[in-house]
Measured scan of single mutants.
Amino acid sequence: TTIHVGDLTLKYDNPKKAYEIAKKLAKKYNLTVTIKNGKITVT
């Protein structure tokens, strides 16, 4: 599972963990989490 945050690309083997991290990042920086085709993007 890949999380895209701006220019950063973070890879995680565990999709659930990746989603949790994405949610935390989104909350911290007041951003939105988008999931599309298995890719998690924080914008």
Rank of each mutant, 00 (worst) to 15 (best):
T1A: 12
T1Y: 14
T1G: 08
T2G: 03
T2M: 09
I3E: 02
I3F: 03
H4W: 09
H4M: 12
H4S: 11
V5G: 02
V5D: 02
V5Q: 02
V5Y: 09
G6K: 03
G6Q: 04
G6F: 12
D7A: 14
D7T: 13
D7S: 15
D7P: 10
D7R: 15
L8P: 02
L8V: 10
L8D: 03
L8C: 15
L8Q: 04
L8F: 10
T9I: 15
T9R: 09
T9N: 07
T9L: 13
T9H: 11
T9Q: 12
L10G: 03
L10C: 12
L10V: 07
K11P: 06
Y12E: 02
Y12P: 03
Y12C: 14
D13G: 07
D13C: 15
D13E: 08
N14F: 06
N14T: 12
N14S: 13
P15E: 10
P15Y: 15
P15D: 07
P15V: 12
P15H: 09
K16E: 12
K16Y: 12
K16N: 08
K16F: 11
K16G: 09
K16C: 11
K17W: 12
K17R: 11
K17N: 05
K17Y: 12
A18D: 00
A18S: 02
A18E: 00
A18G: 03
A18Y: 02
A18R: 01
Y19K: 07
Y19C: 05
Y19A: 06
Y19P: 00
Y19T: 03
E20S: 12
E20H: 10
E20K: 13
E20G: 07
E20C: 09
I21H: 06
I21L: 09
I21V: 12
A22E: 00
A22D: 00
A22C: 07
K23T: 11
K23N: 09
K23V: 13
K24H: 10
K24M: 15
K24Q: 11
K24T: 08
K24C: 14
K24A: 13
L25V: 05
L25D: 00
L25A: 01
L25Q: 01
L25S: 00
A26T: 02
A26F: 06
A26Q: 04
A26D: 00
K27G: 04
K27R: 12
K27I: 10
K27T: 07
K27D: 07
K27A: 12
K28F: 11
K28G: 01
K28I: 09
K28L: 11
K28S: 04
Y29S: 01
Y29I: 01
N30A: 08
L31I: 04
L31A: 05
L31Y: 03
L31S: 02
L31W: 06
T32H: 10
T32W: 06
T32L: 10
T32Q: 10
V33N: 00
V33R: 00
V33C: 05
V33T: 01
T34N: 08
T34R: 10
T34L: 11
I35Y: 08
I35N: 04
I35T: 05
I35W: 08
I35H: 04
I35Q: 04
K36N: 12
K36M: 13
K36P: 01
N37P: 10
N37T: 07
N37K: 08
G38T: 06
G38E: 04
K39D: 12
K39I: 15
K39W: 12
K39M: 14
I40D: 01
I40E: 01
T41D: 05
T41S: 09
T41A: 07
T41E: 09
V42I: 14
V42K: 00
V42C: 05
T43K: 10
T43C: 09
T43L: 12
